[in-house]
Design a protein around this nucleic acid. Structure first.
Lengths: 246, 246
DNA sequence: ATAAAACAACACGTTACGTGTTGTTCAATA
DNA sequence: TATTGAACAACACGTAACGTGTTGTTTTAT
């Protein structure tokens, strides 16, 4: 029993709008198998099958143009198309990762500052805008290949919670950066920073030492929130004051 | 020293095309502060600042319309916009997750079958198309709330490798589903399936038992590759044959 | 036979510009 | 100062995949 559908029936059966079927006809993606004398479109079961395939490919994220191409081609090209699509999806996922972190950082920065601090937003975006490899480039002279690799891994593992805490600490230091390095509060802040850094970079003392050294030279830090010379200078002063006190 | 830029200079300094600045003027996003007698646009430093902000917001994924709205509003609305954007990003990430898994599954299915098996593609897409909660609905009568929760977690943790192996096993069973349940090959296949299942669902024997029970009743399985009655029937037969042999 | 429903074909709108054209203004040079 | 080449404004059309709306025609039910 061969079934024939008018465009309206096909639309109801598949959930695809009439306009869409109209459009698919127009671009030559699905041509109705026949027409009535008056010119109304008639779809047969082959057409239904074509539509199902188109919908499947559309779900996989292909453009209608690509779908037309794929449906005409052989299995070999199929594999290639799917691989390409997979790569596209992975790139998009990475982009969204960066975007999510940037948005979180901006959100936290508004929490802490209680207003919009544009320079910080710019630096957050600049940080996440470049691809991960590039971020660490300034450290090239200070850190080895493996160390950079490690930092990347630790960095990627940071949770929302971690980012939040980290930003809170930096923010607190920025607020009090001019207090006496010998004071209890100064020590507490430095301790807090160190704890956080250890949490992020594991208990890898050596890595942390190398990183700290490079930070002192560069006067500008990695991380999701600008570790600028204000913060680094503060940490230096507290560290020295603490050493002397010993 | 107030700097004034023509559209071309501003374009060169910021990397934004002249056409884009033209467009931003047209939609009222960035209006040049003044014009020459002849009508050429002149941008001042305020305009440069506006442009920097627009670019920052654009990077965060907002539409130009939303950006216009945000730049006019207060800090409060800012928070809300960013939260919304974050939710959008998260939804999109979930969608891409599903999409990636679907594409991987289709890719593997082509590997195994060496041709395009449309019904399998449809079921893969149907599986990933619904939201995660809905997938487990048929099991509602068999599994408790916590058990379903666990399955979801295990499922989400599956790596590419896992999916690949799983599909390979199911595929192999489908190829040999009519062999003697007492044969060595049958036992081996069933063993392979069990190993895989244990790998995915941990060593949680109880969970696996309940799941297996529900599978036998429903005759259709969860998972990224159709565990249909062919496969389930095969596993049943081998299991019984093995019990008797004991 | 007639009225209502379905349909075809066309047009415009959507986003954030790219690309190209025409006519005008600016800036540098002779 | 006149000229010429570069820069510019303003406009048009194209992009992807349709949604929405209109007009005129065909089909279907009564």
């Amino acid at each position: 029993m061969r079934k024939i559908y008018t465009i309206g029936k096909l639309s109801k059966n598949t959930g695809v709008t009439v306009r869409t079927l109209d459009y698919y006809d127009e671009i030559g993606l699905i041509k109705p198998s026949s027409k009535t004398e008056g010119g109304h479109r008639l779809y047969n079961e082959d057409n239904v099958m074509q539509l199902e395939r188109v919908l499947a490919l559309k779900y996989m994220g292909f453009s209608l143009d690509k779908i037309k191409e794929i449906l005409k081609s052989s299995t070999l090209n199929w594999k290639e198309s799917i691989e390409q699509q997979l790569e596209m999806v992975k790139r998009e996922q990475e982009r969204l990762q960066m975007l999510e972190r940037a948005l979180l950082s901006v959100s936290y920065s508004i929490d802490f500052e209680e207003q919009i601090n544009w320079p910080i937003i710019y630096s957050i975006i600049q940080f996440y805008h470049q691809d991960p490899e590039e971020i660490l480039q300034p450290y090239n002279n200070y850190l080895g290949r493996e160390e950079m690799q490690k930092i990347m891994e630790y960095n990627a593992k940071m949770s929302e919670e971690d980012i939040h805490e980290w930003m809170g600490t930096i923010q607190a230091i920025k607020k009090h950066h001019d207090i006496d390095p010998n004071s209890a509060l100064a020590l507490e802040l430095a301790q807090r920073w160190l704890n956080q850094a250890e949490k992020i970079f594991g208990n890898d003392e050596e890595l942390l030492d190398d990183l700290w050294e490079s930070l002192q030279d560069l006067q500008e830090g990695i991380a999701f929130y600008p570790m600028d010379k204000e913060v680094i200078g503060f940490l230096q002063r507290v560290s020295e004051a603490h050493k002397e006190a010993k």
